[in-house]
Design a protein around this nucleic acid. Sequence first.
DNA 1: CTTCGACTACGAGTACGTTCATCTTTATCG
DNA 2: CGATAAAGATGAACGTACTCGTAGTCGAAG
Lengths: 216, 216
Amino acid sequence: MNVLVVEDEPKLADGLARFLTYAGFHVTVAGTLAEAKRQLEQPFDAVLLDVRLPDGEGWTLIPKLKTLKPRPAIILATARGEADDRVFGLELGADDYLVKPIVLKELEIRLKRLVKQTDEISFGDMTVDARSRTVTDAGQAIRMTNKEYELLLFFLKHSGEALDRNRLLDEVWDYTFAGDTRTVDTHVKQLRDKSPTMKRQLKTVHRVGYRLEEVR
Amino acid sequence: MNVLVVEDEPKLADGLARFLTYAGFHVTVAGTLAEAKRQLEQPFDAVLLDVRLPDGEGWTLIPKLKTLKPRPAIILATARGEADDRVFGLELGADDYLVKPIVLKELEIRLKRLVKQTDEISFGDMTVDARSRTVTDAGQAIRMTNKEYELLLFFLKHSGEALDRNRLLDEVWDYTFAGDTRTVDTHVKQLRDKSPTMKRQLKTVHRVGYRLEEVR
DNA sequence: CTTCGACTACGAGTACGTTCATCTTTATCG
DNA sequence: CGATAAAGATGAACGTACTCGTAGTCGAAG
């Protein structure tokens, strides 16, 4: 579990790093936005981002963070009471917010919670473990190919939504493809063939696309 | 989207209720733990829980909330700086935490993030969820074809208006069709057949077209 | 009596499911 | 490390199922 701590105050950065390491995270520290950008060549599970930095406001980094794959969880930290910053950060797409002074235990809890979200997803009899990219359905392990796995994950993350083919092509494939393609259909068929749960719950929405119907 | 606000200070409770209603939530207020317990016979999507209450600490309710199904999202609210409360609440299983004074916009953002979004229009006993393209009437799920769904949506968005066939053909169909067509009639019949509410409320306006009569 | 809407049934067109051939990527083994 | 095999991704082709729109008839309203 890799965490990037972006914090310019050396004492605080050091303290955070120590604590998080102790709590079982693997920590990297960046003191400036520029350095953070360099570090982000490597993948991170989460980024703890101070708002006040020597070379700019922390939240300017958020749009960039959101384009990364895998997209790291984003936690902002600001001096207390700056409520506007808080709202602004959340609206930009930060996943959580901490008010300084940082309570270490709280940081740990929030971090673990955010990271866990992307760790294991269950849906009916299915379980998808993001760490190992393993899928089981009704206790049976299912071997998924890359695309199948990513498509499945997207459906799970948007269960209930009617998703049209263009959206799927855009987000699961990198494609921005104009013409007509059966590719999505083919992969949907694979999912339905491999998993009984998908066979039951993955509905086609005529003239639109597909919808993963929630189990109740 | 039902939210239970547990807050004893009447002014604050009222303000919260107003704002959340405005933001599109359906709000119920409880002033004490005892009252909250009574309200929780009904299902809620989220509970906003003040820590200081006349008859006890708010977090004592958390274990009970976690046994409910559907399990509501739990947001705690406390006076600022009570960091221990914060950690304690999160460890007990609250999903999020707000520091008073509550910033309404922040509350809205956090609520919307925690609660699975539905984009629904309701009309009498009918509910149409745009996100999943599903329709229910009197609790029953109704399977709609694409055109039926779009026509229904158009009627809902223009309830009360008398809509002539040309307008419907223009806007629901892509048609710019001059001649005479029974197409609209056919689809109106489908709607009336499939949904009791439509059977009752979708009136024909002689020599003009149709009008969806508002329910009172 | 005339006109308009309700309703049924049918046919054309279209979108989806499925298979298959081709190209690409990944894995294996020397 | 490179060659070769295996597996996966892709999109075209074809069959099928479904939806939509049209026509014809009946009944009701004006």
